[in-house]
């Protein structure tokens, strides 16, 4: 039993660790720990079977090993480099911009980057906009996404399953500007017609569009996580007399917990980082939303709309880069917290 459990724990573990963002650090650590193995095993086995390995083969091995190691390390390097360059563009305004102060930047809603009399850079409304749109999108997307993943993985027949998977992948391939266009034209009219909201491009519109965009990701990764739960779990559950629903609820969901959380986090990542669709669907208004029918503006959309016309090197330009740093930090914190949550669960 113990041996089987150890074995079966393995694929599940991998499914959770493989899904990037949250546990990227772990994957890199795993790579480093793994390094001696390929060196040892060819030598150990090879000396018996193939006593004369040519120097070329060994050199080739070295090169390949080097390439693989570089790719592993480069992931970390790229992230650091991106942060460094974005921060370098932003730094001058942080340490002595004329109209810039850190506290209003973080906690004021007044965003007047090109004011003629009183320039103010407050991003609170944008941060709140980003979080509210993302939260609304997740409230809509997570139940649908996970539900669809459970259905595709556990309940539907093989033919329907293939069809559904193809369609869902097709959904994931729709470019964001097309989603934005749907939000701007179709969705906004529907919202005005059915709810009587004063304007159709608002928080609700952006949330629905983002939910539609993240559901395919949540479904395909969630389904992989469920698939990684070994069949022996299902067999054991059924043998104990569990119904299918009990099996899903009591056995599969807890067993695939990490993978499902990773699926949700990737969905969050897509929603936070999305630019074009929210720019078109949310109304792009600097506004603290009091309800789902208020228009908002997100950090990403603000950068996209303004960076093109901010003169390079001006305070406005640098503050937009600082907005990028802020976004980067926020996503980092979200990922870190999620990572810690996963670790806490594992230890239990």
């Amino acid at each position: 039993m113990t041996g089987r459990e150890g074995q079966s724990e393995h694929p599940n573990h991998r499914a959770a660790g493989g899904e990037g963002v949250a546990s990227g650090r772990e994957a890199a650590g795993g790579g480093a720990g793994w390094k001696p193995a390929p060196q040892d095993s060819p030598r150990g086995q090879g000396e018996g079977k193939r006593p004369r390995r040519s120097g070329w083969a060994r050199a080739g091995e070295r090169v390949i090993e080097g390439v693989i190691r570089t790719s592993g390390v480069s992931a970390v390097l790229f992230v650091l480099a991106i942060f460094f360059f974005v921060f370098r563009e932003a730094a001058p305004v942080l340490f002595g911009g004329e109209h810039f102060k850190l506290l209003p930047f973080l906690f004021s809603v007044e965003w007047y980057p090109t004011s003629a009399s009183n320039v103010r850079y407050g991003t609170l409304a944008l941060t709140v906009g980003t979080f509210s749109v993302t939260a609304l999108a997740m409230v809509l997307a997570v139940p649908f996404g996970l539900g669809a993943a459970v259905f595709v993985s556990e309940f539907c027949g093989p033919r329907l399953k293939e069809t559904l998977k193809v369609v869902i992948e097709l959904l994931a391939a729709i470019p964001s500007v097309v989603w934005g266009f749907i939000g701007l034209t179709v969705m906004s009219r529907l919202i005005v017609h059915f709810t009587g909201a004063p304007v159709g491009v608002n928080l609700l519109n952006g949330g629905i569009i983002l939910a539609l965009m993240s559901v395919p990701i949540i479904v395909s990764i969630g389904e992989d996580a469920l698939k990684a739960v070994p069949d022996s779990y299902r067999e054991a559950g059924l043998a104990l007399g569990a119904t299918r629903w009990q099996l899903v609820y009591r056995v599969l969901l807890p067993a695939a917990r990490n993978g499902l959380l990773a699926a949700v986090l990737l969905g969050v990542g897509r929603a936070v980082g999305e630019t074009m669709a929210v720019l078109m669907a949310t109304g792009h208004a600097v506004n603290l939303p009091l309800g789902v029918f208020d228009s908002v503006r997100t950090l990403t959309a603000n950068v996209a709309a303004e960076l093109g016309e901010a003169p390079a090197g001006s305070d406005h330009y640098r503050v937009l880069f600082l907005t990028g740093v802020l976004l980067f930090s926020l996503t980092f914190v979200v990922n870190l917290v999620a990572d810690l949550v996963i670790r806490g669960w594992r230890r239990k």
Binding site: E110, A116, H284, A285
Partner: peptide
């Protein structure tokens, strides 16, 4: 003088007219 916050800031002249026509 500055604009009141909370206006819907469109990225093109045509978008302004389109939105007003729908709203």
């Amino acid at each position: 003088r500055d604009f009141k916050l909370g206006s819907l800031d469109m990225n093109g002249s045509k978008e302004v007219v389109e939105l007003v026509g729908n709203t």
